[in-house]
């Protein structure tokens, strides 16, 4: 089964999305901040990463940059899931190599899972 790494500092949102992924039959790894996110990515080698942008410590953009710089991780698709949604943010994320950019308030967990499914297909 495909493994999803969820990097999200808000416990509540993380639990909700994890629960939904769990129901969808995915393997799950979790991280609550950027540094742990990079560490988990290296350790778990997930198939896809769900990445929040506003994180304690190093932010999501920096995490994305580090992931894309690491040869062993650069091929893992990263889906940004954030409350930011200004064009500048979206463009910056996409330029850094994100596969997609979802604004949290505009998608339900179900739709997010659909997106993950379509990227992995």
């Amino acid at each position: 089964m495909a493994k999803v790494l969820v990097i999200e500092d808000d416990t509540f949102l993380r639990e909700l999305i994890v629960q939904k992924l769990d129901q969808g039959g995915y393997d799950i790894a979790e991280a609550v901040d950027g540094e742990e996110g990079v560490k988990q990515a290296k350790a778990e080698k997930p198939d896809i990463i769900l990445l929040d942008l506003i994180l304690p410590g190093i932010d999501g953009f920096e995490v994305l940059r580090q992931l894309k710089e690491d040869e062993t991780l650069s091929s893992i698709p990263v889906l940004i899931l954030s409350n930011l949604g200004q064009k500048e943010d979206i463009e910056k994320g996409m330029k850094l190599g994100a596969k997609g950019f979802l604004i949290k308030a505009h998608f339900t967990p179900g739709e997010i899972i659909e997106k993950i499914k379509s990227i992995l297909a």
Partner: peptide, 22 residues
């Protein structure tokens, strides 16, 4: 406005989860 989005997302997700019978 950005800060408000986080709880609103949570509410949205929870309501959806409830109404989908999760």
């Amino acid at each position: 406005a950005h800060q408000l989005r986080t709880p609103l997302s949570a509410i949205k997700w929870i309501l959806r989860a409830l109404s989908e019978g999760d």
